[in-house]
Amino acid sequence: MIEAVLPQASLLKKIIEAIKELVSEANFDFSETGIRLQAMDKSHIALSFLHLRNDGFSEYRCDRSQTLGINLESFSKVLKCAANDDQVQIKATDKAESLSISFESTAKDRVSEFNVKLMDIDIDSVDVPDMDYQATVNMSSQEFARIVRDMMTIGEAITIDATKQGVKFSTSGDAGEGNILLRHRKTIDEEDGPSSTSVEINEPVSHSLALKFLANFAKAAPLADRVSINLIEDAPVMFEFKISDMGHIRFYLAPQIEE
């Protein structure tokens, strides 16, 4: 038996919106400690990770570990039937064929219940080790979304250069080229405002990435004020959005290589 309650449906809506463009169907692994999801996009270039800890839910029960295969488009459609501040409960019995999702209004006078069919999804999973990144950029997630949008007007690829001075995003295309530099601020405090950027760096590092994937990652911006971009030479770049006090979404993107 699985049962998980979140006080506000808006959080679950934002989580599903953040990954459904990249991943059409995914296995949700429920265990005593929480929920995990790992999925690659169709082209196997980007990897999405979701981790929600049990203590982030207002109620959480998982009698035995269970994997539920869910079509994210269907999940998203059902979540659109919830008001943002509805309480949401998800429930599945052992060997269930569907996931039960119910919404309760704040006044507790309206309760709706939906069932989404579960599916068997046969996918390869990978083991992602903890890495010592050469550079970590911590910046406003809104700013990240804006830069991705701006760069996409010019090019298809983006180069991220992290140095002690800051982080530079650049692109080029048939129409021309452009770059945006965010200068490193030593401390991120109230005075600097939430838009400031910090770059923790061991060695300067540069990566070229496909912008269309970053546009998908930017859909996680409503979940978190900040995003961290973690770079290491010759390895995927990791983008992390923290989900309040309960977990994170991480996206890994393989770098582009010039031939």
Partner: peptide
């Protein structure tokens, strides 16, 4: 030409 490698090439399968 730009080559895009598969993410699976970087991580071991479980």
């Amino acid at each position: 030409d730009i080559l895009q490698t598969s993410i699976a090439a970087y991580f071991a399968a479980t």
